[in-house]
Design a protein around this nucleic acid. Structure first.
Lengths: 345, 345
DNA sequence: TTGTAAGCGTTATCAC
DNA sequence: GTGATAACGCTTACAA
């Protein structure tokens, strides 16, 4: 603290009896300054409590040290796990991570993106409300690397990291069919969400391939991917006459599945004996449910980590030209909500 | 885009045929520039795709437009709800929010705080690993407002926003006593976490006041506040001989309670008939459990919002001198995990 | 109402 | 190995 002001390189230089450039060298290329002066400078820094001003650094250097992730739904732990993976990768690259949450609203998303551009972040990771929204392309055109997370960018306009959602829907329903179910509900919505669309599509595909009658795959649409909507779907399910009622349900995500599970058990039905349930994402709370939930596992942290690596490559590697769109393979984790005897978590 | 470079105020000025200062005025004090020039400038900005450089702004203006929150545990939804409350308040003040996660590790916390100081954030909200750590006081001394969230700052050194944890422990155990329980387990740890210490202390206080024998309040320590530790506590509980076994448990947070609930139901016991369970925090997943969980509710978003207001007050109000430490009153939300008939969510 | 110019704290390019 | 010095893009007096 120098005279009420927070100390600058200039103050450090004066206090250490060296020039301003030397102080900068100590911070940015320590190998170029002699050990003795370096030590003197470092002591001065410590004494004055010098903290480098990142704005000035960034302005001069023209390069920021932060990445950003714009989440789609902050109340879904899935996205926090993704964020955690990004954070790990960012940490390794010695970068800070800005986490924002659009809460599924396009206008909030735009506000956040706007701010991030002003901050000149080094790259933006985003699970977008709509991957085709023009502002995303616009940002990319400005030279800020954009990577779509948990969704495939359209037309190869961006790098993206995602899981094969269609395949995910297939293995979920295939698993139910293997358990002998011949009337299955698919629960999810709104279909404006791409992930939902594809998971449901996968379910329908495999159902047809298995030669099962289309009418026995019953679609229960929901207004959102939330626990509450899962409960409401459960009530609708209960309203179906017993001989037409599905014996199993595939939910487009774990939040829905948890809600459905709660409603079902609360109504006195046994899971999986009277209703088997499969979720999607495999968040931690899926395994922690009273009846541990079978779920289609996404490699949550890995998704984030891979996305961060892609964005860094695009930011720093001059011959990053063709956008990459790796698709991870989802994996079914069978637990007690579909398998009668197993108590495995 | 000018010449491959991202356009600056200078470019806008030239393109609009005005001076650089006028462009700045359009952004910062539009009322001072005539409508016609303003419109001309705005058109030029749009045409060039001008985006203000926040680093430069911050460097010159000496004031940053971001707040930061350092969470204690990113895998606990409670903290995300707090963060959401902060974000709402930040949004209203037109500020960005940096979210970091120390994951309970002091070293990660320091790294984050260091970065935040370099960014010259306007204020730091933190649920610290240890509120007495010297680096917190150090930051505060430098003039960056620090507000402790979900914990009371020691010795009035900081503003803080928290819930009365002792009271929370009291109402939880009082509720169990009212339901007729006379042997109760308290589950939680490590005691190095202040919140845990106080919640357990409240439980012991009321137990003594009710005149119940100390030996009938059985402490089951845990190594962390996680679902897995809750399960493990459940196993230990099951190992207690039936006539000594508690008929109810108070868990220091909902994650533990959820784990305990799962283990208990998985072992074939009925909740609440054979074991009643109370959690703490009232995260969304508490209400969503198969047997909806009774919990001590913290006003999660409100906590964040209040903390943000405090930090802003400290940052902008010159006569913010005495640190405020509002204590919110926790509230018991009774659900099916303790109350036999109720199916209320 | 508009224009001019002096920095903000840092980095990087040169001479020394 | 070290020390001046010119930017970086913006805000804000102050002058016109």
């Amino acid at each position: 603290m120098v005279n009420g002001r927070t100390p600058s390189v200039k103050d450090v230089a004066r206090s250490a009896g060296v020039s301003l450039g030397t102080v900068s060298n100590v911070m940015n290329r320590p190998e170029v300054v002699s050990p003795s002066t370096r030590e003197r400078v470092e002591r001065a820094m410590a004494e004055l409590g010098f903290v480098r001003n990142e704005s000035a650094r960034q302005l001069r250097a023209g390069t920021s040290r932060t990445l950003a992730y714009v989440m789609l739904d902050g109340s879904n732990p899935f996205f926090h796990d993704v964020a955690q993976g990004i954070e790990l990768a960012a940490e390794e690259a010695d970068l800070s991570l800005f986490i924002c949450n659009s809460n599924g609203r396009a206008d909030r998303e735009e506000v956040h993106l706007d701010r991030l551009m002003q901050q000149r972040v080094q790259g933006i990771l985003i699970t977008p409300v709509n991957p085709e929204a023009p502002h995303l392309a616009e940002i990319s055109r400005r030279g800020i690397p954009v990577v779509i997370v948990d969704r495939v960018g359209v037309g190869g306009a961006f790098c993206s990291v995602a899981v094969d959602d269609v395949l995910g829907g297939r293995i979920a329903v295939e698993h139910l069919a293997e358990q002998g179910h011949t009337r299955v509900a698919v629960v999810g919505g709104p279909e404006s969400i791409g992930q939902v669309r594809e998971r449901l599509e996968g379910a329908r595909q495999i159902w047809a391939e298995l030669g099962l009658p289309p009418d026995d795959l019953i679609y229960l649409p929901t207004a959102a991917l939330t626990v509450a909507e899962g409960r409401s779907a459960g009530e609708r399910l209960a309203g179906i006459p017993a001989r037409r009622r599905p014996t199993a349900a595939f939910c487009a995500n774990d939040l829905l599945a948890l809600g459905l599970l709660q409603q079902t058990i609360g109504a006195g039905l046994r899971v999986p004996e009277e209703l088997a349930i499969v979720g999607f994402d495999d968040i931690e709370f899926a395994a922690a449910a009273a009846v541990p939930l079978t779920s289609v596992r996404q490699p949550r942290q890995e998704l984030g980590r891979a996305a961060a690596q892609l964005v860094l490559d695009e930011a720093t590697n001059p011959d990053h030209h063709h956008h990459q769109q790796p698709l991870f393979v989802p994996e079914l984790v069978a637990r007690a909500s579909t398998v009668v005897r197993s108590r495995a978590y």
